[in-house]
């Protein structure tokens, strides 16, 4: 409770140096009070990340063996060293770029097919009745299990990896869109009809915007699964990509690179879900307050 006030204290003198805005310091104090919770979260979050790094550092420098062995685990500083080396290495950047491209193509295709299909299935019973059983059978199959089939289906490795990524994100997107459609408030549809809306307008003005929150849930989940699927596919059948990089590092006994690959995957996954969240706020201004 006291930490935000302590955080506010050093800001006040800085504010006082702005003579043109006499209320600035009062405003700054208010801003700190209003954002107390968020600042607190930020502080604790940073502290927890630092603690994690310290724990990692200690466990590896002392090569702790306690059920799990930290004997061969690279230390954070070693990983940082390989990171500084890697960012000047065009090959590493190419791995990352290629993974991002696969995600972009696979995920975009999944969204372009999954969202409209979900909307249409939600609106037209016959389409639902035809597509749903097939989707339900295919949905529980993990994308990794598709790897051999994908290699047979597609002429190039690149295409089969994109296909795996597509499959991973397709079903969460489809299912969530469909779920959103079933939850559309029928009273809103009736209200639109009373105001003279026809089928196409109701679809565009009611069903679609009403489903958007669930569509974005689907996109967020789909993006997560897309990365899971991509990394698995790259590890098994890739020649490039950050998943391949990580696996290759293991084969070449480059332990620091394993951790570097893992962290890169984490950062990329986090970044891509942030992009989706930002897009969601942009598309649904009525949901942000």
């Amino acid at each position: 409770m006291t930490s935000p006030e302590q955080a506010a204290a050093p800001a006040a003198p800085a504010a006082a140096t702005l003579p043109s805005r006499p209320e600035f310091s009062a405003r700054a104090a208010r801003w700190f009070r209003l954002n107390q919770d968020r600042l607190r979260g930020l502080l604790i979050g940073t502290a927890s990340l630092i603690l994690f790094l310290i724990a990692w550092h200690l466990l590896t420098t002392y090569r702790v063996v306690f059920f799990v062995k930290f004997t061969n685990v690279p230390a954070p500083l070693a990983v940082y060293a390989s990171f500084t080396k890697a960012i000047h290495d065009p090959k590493f950047l190419m791995h990352i770029l290629l993974s991002c491209r696969r995600i972009f193509i696979g995920f975009s295709l999944a969204a372009l097919v999954g969202v409209p299909l979900g909307l249409i299935m939600g609106r037209f019973k016959l389409v639902h009745e035809i597509v749903f059983p097939v989707a339900e059978v295919l949905r529980p199959i993990p994308a990794i299990a598709w790897v051999p089939m994908a290699i047979m289906l597609w002429p190039t490795n690149e295409q089969s990896i994109v296909f795996i990524t597509f499959l991973g994100s397709f079903f969460p997107i489809l299912v969530n869109t469909l779920h959103g459609m079933t939850l559309v408030d029928p009273v809103l549809v009736r209200a639109a009809k009373c105001l003279g809306a026809r089928e196409a307008s109701i679809f565009r003005e009611v069903y679609f915007p009403a489903s958007l929150p669930h569509i974005f849930t689907g996109l967020t989940v789909g993006m997560g699964v897309a990365w899971v699927s991509l990394i698995a596919a790259e590890m098994i059948s890739g020649q490039f990509g950050i998943g391949y990089f990580t696996w290759e590092a293991y084969s070449l006994v480059q332990y620091a690179d394993i951790a570097l690959g893992m962290i890169a995957i984490g950062v990329l996954g986090l970044g891509s879900s942030l992009v989706i969240r930002a897009a969601g706020q942009l598309v649904m201004p009525w949901r942000s307050r």
Partner: peptide, 11 residues
């Protein structure tokens, strides 16, 4: 028509 649940379009 006016509904009890207001039924305004939230978006």
């Amino acid at each position: 028509m006016v509904f009890q649940q207001y039924s305004l379009f939230p978006w």
